[in-house]
Structures are given as structure tokens and as C-alpha cells.
């Protein structure tokens, strides 16, 4: 040990040492990296290739260029699924963000029982999705469900048929998903709110700003990085929605709630049309990518 102590500060930057260091460094990363490379990186790369192939489980893969994409663009199910996914995202993204921000603002106060309320709001998020979907499905029961009984009680003449009708099944799914996800993003907003220096608000008080002005001129601008982050995460999550829809409506009634993930599952795993389903996967990936890049751009411009 004495020898090591005298030698260490000299630290000869020899090539052998760097190589040893790299070897040790890689040995740390390797156990995870092998699994990650084989099961994530390689499939990701392969998805790009398979999308240009005609491939099912019975015949060998064959290069077909853009055929899968042409077929996809001419397929009605694809457009319906794309439209429904966009519908879901258009409802889920803003509502979840508003609810999460509202909860965070309410729970960033100096009150008793704060811990209890935060835990409560977070709770739906960790509950198993199947249980959530099953319960809400029953709550939404058009004739006997508590929700419609409540609506009739407050005077709604003809309450919606929710998951049994094509017009109302997507709203039902969106309501359930907002209820489930808001507590999760609330935690992110809370972290953002607590990072705002208290001095800003004190200075605003001195200048005589009211609560509304403080909110618009301090809270909202200070939260911009958090909002940006939440927006990206909610967007990605929205576009890949699957479980909730499969359990609540299974894409129905008809194709009223069929989403892209489900279409990929049906074409790829059920029908074994690997090439065609990979083309849809690629389309989904590109949509998410474009949204993310656009949001990054907008965020950058606002920063400058």
C-alpha cells in the first residue's frame, strides 16, 4: 500500500495504462452491453432492413424495395390506425400535461397532509394497467355504470355510450389514461417547481405583482425546461399506446380505437407479416422522431 501511495501521484500516462483502463472500463459495461446490443441495437438496425423485405414465416425473405410502404399507404386500416393514434395523442398530451401541472401547483403548498395527497395522486400510475382498464370499463358501462348514473343524476338527458359506441370509446380511453398518468408527470412538475428560486417570487411581491401575474411571468417561464421534457415523454408514450386500448376496447367497436401499435402487433406477431409490419413500425418511429426533433428545435429557439 505504501508503494501504491507513492507511485500513484506520478501517474505515468503510458499507453499500457490507457489500454488497461479501457479494458477495465469495458468490463464494467460489457455485462449490460452484450444484452443491450443483441436485444436492442441489432433489432433496431434490423427493423430498417426488414421493412424493405417481403418476409413471412413460410417463405425466405426477399428484397422488395418500397413495396411494403406503398401497400401501407394504400391500406385503409393504416390510415384509420394513424388517425386514431393522432386522436388519442391530441387528447392525452394536453389533458395529461394540464392535469399534472394543476396537481403540482396545488401540492407545492405549505399544508398538512401533503405527503398523503402526493402519494394518492401518484397511486393510479403504479396500479396494474389491466386492473385499471377493467375497472374503468365497468364504470363506463352505458346503462348501469356509476359514471352514467352520476351523469343522469346531475341532469344529463342522454349520457354517452362510452366504450360501446365508436364516437365515445376514444374519449373513454383518454379519460382513463389521463386519470392514470397525471400523478406521474405531477412528480416531474413538482421537481421543476421546487427548483424555482423563491427570491423571484419575493421580488415580484415587492413590485406588487398579483398571483396571476406571478404565475404567468415567473412560474410558467421557469418551468419551460420541465414542460419541454414532459411534452417529449408524453408524446412518445402517446404514440406507442397499446395495453390500455387492448384491454379496454381491443381496438373496437369496429376499428374505432385501433392504434398503430396494435396494427403492428396484429400484422407482425399474429399474421407473421414481418416485412409489412416493420414498415408500419418504421412509420411510427419516424412520426415520433419528427415530433421530438421539432420540439427540440422550438425549445432551442425559445432559449436563444
Amino acid at each position: 500500500m505504501a508503494i501504491a501511495a507513492t507511485r500513484a501521484p506520478v501517474r505515468p500516462q503510458s499507453r499500457a495504462r490507457a489500454r488497461r483502463n479501457a479494458l477495465v472500463g469495458w468490463s464494467f459495461i460489457l455485462p449490460n452491453f452484450i444484452g443491450f446490443a443483441v436485444l436492442t441495437l441489432i433489432p433496431m438496425g434490423a427493423a430498417f432492413v426488414i421493412a424493405f423485405m417481403e418476409w413471412d414465416s413460410y417463405s425466405p425473405p426477399e428484397w422488395v424495395g418500397f413495396d411494403n410502404f406503398e401497400r401501407m399507404l394504400g391500406n385503409q386500416s393504416f390510415w384509420i390506425a394513424l388517425g386514431n393514434t393522432a386522436y388519442y395523442a391530441a387528447g392525452h398530451i394536453p389533458l395529461t400535461m394540464l392535469a399534472a401541472l394543476g396537481l403540482a401547483l396545488l401540492l407545492n403548498k405549505r399544508i398538512r397532509g401533503l405527503g398523503f395527497f402526493r402519494t394518492t395522486m401518484f397511486f393510479p400510475y403504479i396500479t396494474s394497467l389491466v386492473a385499471v382498464a377493467v375497472v374503468w370499463n365497468m364504470l363506463f358501462n352505458p346503462t348501469m355504470g356509476p359514471i352514467n348514473q352520476f351523469l343522469e343524476w346531475i341532469g344529463v338527458q342522454d349520457p354517452p355510450g362510452w366504450t360501446t359506441t365508436s364516437a365515445w370509446s376514444m374519449p373513454a380511453v383518454i379519460i382513463t389514461s389521463v386519470w392514470r398518468d397525471m400523478g406521474y408527470y405531477m412528480v416531474l412538475y413538482l421537481a421543476g417547481l421546487q427548483a424555482i428560486p423563491q427570491e423571484y417570487y419575493e421580488a415580484a411581491d415587492v413590485d406588487g405583482a398579483n398571483a396571476w401575474q406571478r404565475f404567468w411571468n415567473i412560474t410558467i417561464p421557469s418551468l419551460r425546461p420541465t414542460t419541454f421534457f414532459v411534452l417529449i415523454m408524453v408524446t412518445i408514450a402517446s404514440f406507442k399506446v397499446f395495453d390500455l386500448i387492448v384491454v379496454m376496447t381491443d381496438g373496437g367497436p369496429g376499428r374505432a380505437t385501433l392504434v398503430l401499435s396494435q396494427l403492428i402487433y396484429e400484422e407482425g406477431i399474429t399474421e407473421n407479416r414481418f416485412g409489412y409490419s416493420s414498415a408500419i413500425s418504421l412509420a411510427l418511429f419516424l412520426i415520433v422522431l419528427v415530433f421530438t426533433v421539432v420540439q427540440f428545435r422550438i425549445q432551442k429557439r425559445k432559449e436563444d
Binding site: F36, L41, M44, I232
Partner: peptide, 27 residues
């Protein structure tokens, strides 16, 4: 640890988090 290629590798790790699983579940 500090070694060549570490940061490139980490960027790859991060980038994959943003890719939806549906995009590569078929392969």
C-alpha cells in the same frame, strides 16, 4: 472510468430510450 469510446457508447444508450419499443419488437 475514462476510456476511448465511452461517450459515444453512452449517447447510443440514451438515444435508444426515445425509440418506441414497437419500432423494433418485430425483429
Amino acid at each position: 472510468m475514462r476510456f476511448k469510446g465511452r461517450d459515444v457508447l453512452f449517447v447510443i444508450y440514451i438515444a435508444t430510450i426515445a425509440v418506441p419499443w414497437q419500432a423494433y419488437m418485430i425483429p
